[in-house]
Nucleic acid binder design. Structure first.
Length: 266
DNA sequence: ACTCAGGTATCCT
DNA sequence: AGGATACCTGAG
């Protein structure tokens, strides 16, 4: 189906924003996204027209929400002013959106992310999905559920290159599986309480908890600080970054900085 | 072969 | 509370 999307929506920017690991360029300008047990192939046909290989039902029920199409991102982007560095970041990040991704998948993905390069993270995640996720089609596998991971031989799980993170993942799987209302309960918490609760999981510190809150719970004011963000802040905000200026959208600003700074320094 | 990677837990002071 | 150090393993 074809869809017109007027707001900020650049597939390449989103794919390289670091918020997603199963959203990659494939052939002919298409981007393949695996999420919520589905595969979507999407391509920009020019201007604001996109081709998506999904039904209207799946678009309305899954992808529209996944892309957060009800939020006006160009408005947030245009709110960036006064600071030349931030304005440059926002300009080079035109098309950025904050995806509404699965909370469990974000938890595992960002636990895996610690001390790994992005290509290595993607490799580990794909191996894990192939090992114990549901088969979606000939080549793609869904992200495994907590019980699917808990039911898989630990030796085989190790073959996904998880290293010392494996025990963290098993512990998180146990937390999600043994408490069916875990996610629903966390959703009720305010940002600060959510942050503290997430950090109770093994292997979840400040940075990973911020990522889970921002990319999974869609709490747009979280501002994860990784090595790239820290370098950018040291260089451009020696006196500290004022988290009051862009609240409640600090997380969107973080994505602009991450995307722009990383892509111009690697 | 060697370094470093979207950090965190643990052990210090 | 804040600083130093070890940690699995793959990608360049």
């Amino acid at each position: 189906m074809e869809k017109i999307i007027k707001d900020d929506f650049d597939l390449n920017v989103i794919a390289n924003s670091g918020q997603c690991f199963r959203f990659n360029q494939s052939a002919d300008g298409y981007y393949k996204i695996v999420a919520f047990n589905k595969v979507l192939n999407i391509k920009n046909l020019g201007k604001d027209t996109f081709d998506l290989d999904c039904s209207k039902e799946d678009f309305d029920n899954i992808w529209s929400d996944y892309f957060d199409l009800n939020t006006n991102y160009s408005k947030i982007r245009k709110s960036v002013k006064d600071n030349p560095f931030l304005m440059e970041c926002a300009t080079s990040s035109i098309g950025m959106r904050m995806l509404k991704q699965d909370i469990w998948e974000m938890t595992v993905s960002f636990i895996i992310s610690q001390r790994k390069s992005i290509p290595a993270i993607k490799t580990s995640i794909e191996r894990l999905c192939e090992l114990c996720g549901d088969k979606i089609n000939d080549t793609d596998y869904a992200f495994p559920t907590p019980i699917q991971i808990l039911s898989t031989d630990a030796g085989k799980l190790s073959s996904c290159g998880l290293g010392y993170r494996l025990s963290y993942i098993l512990s998180a799987a146990e937390t999600f599986y043994s408490n069916p209302s875990y996610v629903a309960d966390l959703k009720k918490l305010d940002d600060e309480s959510l942050f503290e609760e997430l950090k109770k999981m093994q292997g979840v510190g400040d940075k990973v908890a911020s990522c889970i809150a921002l990319f999974g719970f869609h709490r747009l004011n979280f501002f994860p600080k990784d090595v790239w963000i820290n370098r950018a802040l040291e260089e451009h905000f020696p006196n500290g970054f004022d988290m009051n200026l862009y609240a409640p959208y600090n997380g969107v600003i973080q994505q602009y900085i991450f995307y722009a700074y990383r892509n111009s320094h690697k």
